[in-house]
């Protein structure tokens, strides 16, 4: 089953006097376990698309089915709950709560989900191990490097066991080494936990780590390539 299925999605921002057509009829589907990147020039609509996939914004027109649920039909509060349980988010920055420790940040959504303390701690320990930051679990985010912070954000997004993780330019603020490192960790988690990642990027090297590359321009998908060969190698 497709975990994401969108058809004829358009988005028009008309807050200002001139309406902006950010998305112009996008059809896309994603299956479980994908590791896809969305690329395109600045202003092409990457963030807008990811926001619609994540239920942070509403499409002006079109169908958005996430895990079989029509997102457009959900009320604000239901959508929040839906995001909490089904979708993980990694943003470019401001991912973490500065007053909480690394461990507490990773546990945060699990706490919102009402998961028991023992289970939370077990899961957090696993994830800390996976992102290689077990020894930093009691640090505040501002004591970590940008790359480490993004790794924690990935762990936090994974902790709640979502259906997929959306990451809008997760490496934009990172140097290339940290960026690659983050992508490697994401790739590893994608393989080991079979978690779906969809991320947008400008960075060619980051893009090339993806198994599927969707290119959009002026709010339209202009290419959608699955790199089977990489897939087969793994």
């Amino acid at each position: 089953m497709n975990i994401i299925e969108i058809k004829g999605v358009t988005k028009i921002y008309d807050k200002n006097t001139i309406p902006v057509h950010a998305l112009n009829g996008i059809d896309l589907t994603f299956q479980e376990g994908e590791f896809a990147s969305i690329v395109g020039p600045s202003g092409s609509g990457k963030t807008t698309l990811l926001n619609i996939l994540g239920g942070l914004d509403d499409a002006t027109d079109g169908v958005v089915l996430i895990d079989g649920v029509d997102l457009t039909a959900l009320s604000g509060a239901k959508k929040t709950t839906f995001r909490k349980n089904k979708i993980g988010f990694v943003f470019q920055s401001f991912n973490l709560i500065p007053v909480l420790t690394v461990q507490e940040n990773i546990e945060f959504i699990m706490q919102l989900q009402g998961i028991a303390r023992e289970d939370r701690e077990k899961r957090t320990a696993e994830l800390l191990e996976a992102i290689g930051l077990s020894d930093r679990k009691n640090s505040r985010p501002n004591k970590l490097s940008g790359g480490q912070q993004q790794r924690v954000a990935v762990a936090r997004a994974l902790a709640s066991k979502p259906k997929f993780i959306l990451a809008d330019e997760p490496t934009a603020n990172l140097d290339s080494k940290s960026a690659e490192n983050l992508l490697d960790i994401m790739g590893k988690l994608n393989r080991e936990e079979n978690i779906t990642f969809i991320f947008s990027t400008h960075d060619l090297r980051v893009m090339n780590k993806a198994k599927r590359i969707i290119t959009i321009e002026d709010g339209k998908v202009i290419s959608d390539v699955v790199k089977e060969e990489i897939h087969n190698l793994i």
């Binding site: 994540g54 942070l56 604000g76 509060a77 929040t80 709950t81 995001r83 909490k84 349980n85 993980g88 988010f89 943003f91 920055s93 401001f94 991912n95 709560i97 500065p98 945060f108 959504i109 919102l112 989900q113 936090r156 997004a157 709640s160």
Partner: peptide, 16 residues
């Protein structure tokens, strides 16, 4: 603003 937006995005309800 951004942090509160992030909290809402990751599933913290408006009531919370």
């Amino acid at each position: 603003v951004r942090e509160i937006g992030m909290l809402m995005a990751v599933g913290m309800s408006k009531i919370k």
